[in-house]
């Protein structure tokens, strides 16, 4: 338990130190408890594949999760372009990216696929939808639920299931900030 607490403190310090350049208002950074994700949450990705959110997407992986919807024209393309850059810089082995639609009624797998293709995403990046109730439950598990999709909080959840280290970057974090956080949560070699 102490161990975990220490890790959290270090993570916090580490994350605070690296955001020195004043390019933009630094997103607030906090280390957080691992989200508790029920194992039986079944979702669909942009290829229409049925997946268990925990087993197929989170278990034993380092992940970065953002929250988007395809009819959102301002922050979502930005957040997606940022993820694209993260993927390009780190490669799919180091990070599994997940974009969860907060508007599952509209965002069918086909629609998410079109959206993903506009950003030429590579494998190792799943766009997630499912039935409304399941996605809402998932969003609640991840503390990313908001009743009005246009008010969804811009936030990136970054974590590693093996080391149980998680953090949240609020606002629209830069690719650089996300990469640094990913390195922090990844198991050290």
């Amino acid at each position: 338990m102490n161990n975990k607490w220490l890790k959290t403190v270090f993570l916090l310090l580490g994350l605070l130190l690296i955001r020195l350049e004043p390019v933009c208002a630094a997103p607030s950074i906090i280390a957080v408890e691992s989200p508790i994700i029920s194992e039986n949450i079944q979702v669909e990705n942009q290829q229409g594949h049925q997946l268990s959110f925990y087993t197929d997407l989170i278990k034993n992986k380092t992940v970065a999760i953002n929250f988007i919807f395809t009819t959102c024209s301002s922050s979502c393309p930005l957040a997606t372009a940022v993820f694209k850059q993260v993927q390009k810089q780190l490669g799919a082995q180091k990070i599994h990216l997940i974009s969860i639609s907060v508007d599952p009624n509209t965002d069918t797998p086909a629609r998410l696929n079109t959206f993903a293709q506009q950003f030429k995403t590579a494998t190792g990046w799943d766009f997630i939808t499912g039935d409304r109730a399941t996605i809402n439950a998932l969003l609640q598990n991840l503390e990313a639920y908001s009743a009005d999709k246009t008010l969804h909080t811009n936030m990136v959840l970054i974590g590693n299931d093996k080391t149980h280290t998680w953090t949240r970057l609020y606002g629209l974090p830069s690719a650089e900030a996300i990469i640094t956080a990913i390195k922090q949560v990844s198991p050290q070699p």
Partner: peptide, 19 residues
């Protein structure tokens, strides 16, 4: 050019009206 990702993209996805 997006300040957040230092990448250059077509502006069609980032029209002023979108934001």
């Amino acid at each position: 050019t997006l300040g957040l990702s230092n990448t250059s993209l077509s502006a069609t996805r980032f029209a002023c009206a979108n934001c």
